[in-house]
Design a protein around this nucleic acid. Structure first.
Lengths: 328, 328
DNA sequence: CCTTGCCCATATGTCCGACGTATGGCCAGC
DNA sequence: GCTGGCCATACGTCGGACATATGGGCAAGG
């Protein structure tokens, strides 16, 4: 063991042979078995290489760790000290790999999610509930914003995902990935006192003379174009008045200021004064989608969340949603 | 690298390839350099094996840790997580080896030390002071006891070391190691009013008629036999009265109950009524020694303390003490 | 006292894996 | 389109980790 050259005094000839985890694992086994032979059996190796690793470890640390007898080995004080540290370190390695694995699998982490207000009526709550149930260690940073701001947040990387309604003819965004997570038919939103409010189905064409209330028109705002498109499909050009958010539209309809055409989920917030009535035929569909910046790879949490959103059967008025694009 | 059989999907074929510290060290270097090539240079290896180790680590953890570009690499979220853990673990390994080394070198630990009361006047205080100065992280468990109990504590392994006076003709203890740490001449202890108390030197023979006070006689008690031996050397058999500990002897002498012969250090506790006077000639010497059980190897702290005690020039009335038995 | 048994250390051969050299592919910048 | 930088792959080499075989030392038992 002792080299012919070099003093035995500690520190000399410590030629940078770092400690390895294998040695710590072996040492713990030997310490627990109080025997090299039994430890070797437990480690599924033979005794000589285990002895060699122990000698190596002792050389690296620079102090004897084991007292050898003919009945086995005993720990020196330094060995007892090392045993405590080694157990802690090995447990730390396991915990670390677990933590890293969890992050890598998206089971731990943060998700920045921008969404338009209207989605809080429909897809967002069940999505978040599912997320909390499946991935309790994922923190969601929610940002409510208008449609344009949502897309801008995603483009700028400030949010991982955005939740918006798609336009009737969605533009091709080269830099965005789009995944539809919900489809809703449009419905007529009428004052409770309206003659058509009590009917099973509403005939859009017969509303042609009414004042139509719509959310504010913006480049990415989809509800306004959907309203206009629905009216045109029914054969007339609506008299549109912009009043802000969809929820404001519903409130104004309730106040008798006009009628509107909105996604079906708007019916859940109609309150006292307004009612939602399905359209008689050819009800256009509004798609709600998650958008993601395409440039960089999605974070593990993002991937996981997307998988969740695509695999979850959404409450879909039309029927089972088509899960698009299982993986890129 | 990939075997012909087995899917590439993660998790399959995780055939128990544990993470090694080398990989963590490499990974930290790469993470810090944000470049495999630069990290390889820093690690004094070439780039390909470093890439291989990284791939191996990623395979073992099961999730990608690095995003590769043509300008270098970037950490994934899992990589960032691992970086934190890896730094902590590597620092933990260094701290652990340091701690173990300290224990192994006796720079940290506990020392059980039994001692006789009289040694607290002479060798013990400077020894403890030296210990606190040189090895501040060593805790000393002090046990004061009679000579027999001290030896018994050491024999039973309850104390690492014992500090006792040696008998005039010390018995050969097969199972004990003895290291003399101090030599003191015997002195006469006289009442201040005693005719001989004012002299430079005391003539023991002329005290032959006095009552001699001595510590209680026990098998290992050395002071009583030393007193008797000194008197016999002076040519008379003393009239001895046992009164307990050496400090009691001094107090009784001060009270005028008799005279005594004790190690020179007794003079430092004589107080008002008693004085210590060197003997005229042939003053016998009392040796104070550390005793240790021979059976088992001494603990690192014990070794270190013994080295300290042997190397320290003790305040020796005779002159430089002979350091006996540097190592067994 | 000698034998037996157990356990750890040493010697030696084999093989995997860590490393080095050479090379290819990919992407940015000129 | 060419160049340069960077990472991955291919392949040969060598050290080290492991297995087999053997030696030595101590305790228990004859």
């Amino acid at each position: 063991m002792g080299k012919v050259f070099g003093r035995v005094s500690d520190g000399v000839f410590r030629q940078e042979v770092p400690v390895e985890l294998r040695q710590l694992r072996y040492f713990v086994a030997v310490a627990e078995e109080r025997s090299v032979t039994r430890a070797a059996a437990r480690l599924h190796i033979t005794q000589p290489p285990l002895s060699a690793q122990l000698a190596r470890l002792e050389h690296e640390v620079g102090v004897p760790l084991l007292g050898r007898h003919n009945r086995g080995v005993e720990l020196t004080e330094a060995g007892e000290e090392l045993l405590v540290h080694a157990r802690r370190l090995l447990a730390g390695v396991d915990a670390a790999t677990d933590a890293v694995r969890r992050v890598g699998q998206g089971r731990t982490g943060r998700l920045g999610l921008a969404f338009v207000a209207a989605s809080a009526w429909s897809v967002l709550p069940p999505l978040l509930a599912q997320l909390r149930a499946d991935l309790p260690d994922v923190t969601v940073d929610l940002v409510q914003a208008g449609p344009d701001e949502v897309v801008e947040h995603v483009r700028a990387g400030r949010c991982d995902l955005g939740l918006v309604h798609l336009l009737p003819q969605p533009p091709v965004d080269r830099d965005l990935d789009v995944a539809v997570v919900d489809r809703e038919p449009l419905v007529a939103v009428l004052p409770r006192a309206h003659p058509m409010a009590s009917g099973e189905r509403a005939d859009l064409a017969s509303l042609a003379a009414e004042t139509f209330l719509a959310p504010t028109r913006t480049p990415r705002g989809a509800l306004h174009p959907h309203l206009v498109a629905a009216c045109r499909l029914a054969g007339f050009e609506p008299d549109v008045r912009e009043v802000g958010l969809a929820q404001t539209v519903v409130a104004f309809v309730g106040a008798g200021l006009g009628v509107s055409v909105l996604p079906a989920s708007a019916g859940s917030v109609c309150g006292e004064g307004a009612v939602a009535v399905p359209l008689r035929l050819n009800a256009p569909v509004v798609e709600t989608a998650l958008v993601r910046r395409r440039g960089s790879a999605p974070s593990p949490v993002t991937r996981r969340f997307l998988r969740l959103a695509m695999s979850t059967p959404e409450p879909d008025v039309l029927g089972p949603a088509l899960a698009r694009r299982p993986r890129s």
